[in-house]
Computed example of a mutant assay.
Amino acid sequence: MAAQLRALTKEAKLPGSGTVWRSAVAPERRALIGNLLDDAQEQLIQLRGAQRGSSAEAAERLLKGLGCGIDRLQQAVRETVGAALEAGVRVEDVAAWAGLSPDALAEVLGDGGRAVR
């Protein structure tokens, strides 16, 4: 019993929900996050060869490609934040890990802050 109490006390001091990601986040959502990250990675890899042609053409390809990569990463951030919040992680912890204030986190989620308040 003493060992269990020590473990519970230690867990209470650590940020997070104490749940395991795989049990707290649906497989479909985990797959979506993985796919978004894979898409972003592929988009960025393709940009390595985009620096040919005129300055305007290369800049256009790079900026459009970066925009697509950024969009996928932002989607992955929103999905990961949402999954963490649904798993019971405190808003303050999720915001700190994302390098955001709770208000900025609400803005990232794009739901008017309902999910974080």
Rank of each mutant, 00 (worst) to 15 (best):
V25L: 03
V25H: 04
A26W: 15
A26H: 06
P27F: 05
P27Q: 14
E28L: 15
R29A: 14
R29N: 15
R30N: 13
R30M: 11
A31K: 09
A31I: 11
A31G: 12
A31C: 13
A31D: 14
L32R: 10
L32V: 06
L32F: 10
L32N: 13
L32T: 06
I33Q: 08
I33D: 09
I33P: 05
G34H: 05
G34E: 05
G34N: 04
N35D: 06
N35P: 08
N35T: 13
L36E: 13
L36R: 04
L36H: 07
L36A: 06
L37G: 14
L37H: 15
D38T: 15
D38G: 07
D38L: 08
D39F: 00
D39M: 01
D39K: 00
A40E: 09
A40N: 06
A40S: 06
Q41L: 10
E42I: 14
Q43L: 01
Q43V: 01
Q43A: 05
L44R: 07
Q46S: 11
Q46G: 08
R48F: 15
R48G: 15
G49T: 09
G49M: 14
A50R: 07
A50M: 06
Q51T: 14
Q51E: 15
Q51S: 13
R52A: 08
G53E: 05
G53K: 07
S54R: 06
S54P: 07
S54V: 14
A56P: 15
A56H: 07
A56T: 15
A59F: 11
E60G: 08
R61T: 12
L63K: 07
L63A: 11
L63H: 06
L63N: 04
K64C: 11
G65N: 02
G65E: 00
L66V: 04
L66W: 00
L66I: 02
L66S: 00
G67E: 11
G67W: 04
G67L: 12
C68T: 02
C68M: 01
C68S: 04
C68Y: 00
G69W: 00
G69P: 01
G69Y: 01
R72E: 07
L73V: 10
L73M: 07
Q74F: 03
Q74S: 08
Q74W: 00
Q75C: 10
Q75N: 03
Q75E: 05
Q75P: 02
A76H: 01
A76Q: 01
A76V: 01
V77R: 01
V77K: 01
R78A: 14
R78D: 13
R78W: 02
E79C: 13
E79Q: 12
E79L: 14
T80A: 06
T80L: 04
T80C: 04
T80H: 10
V81I: 05
V81N: 11
G82Q: 01
G82H: 01
G82Y: 00
G82D: 05
A83C: 03
A83Q: 01
A83K: 00
A83L: 02
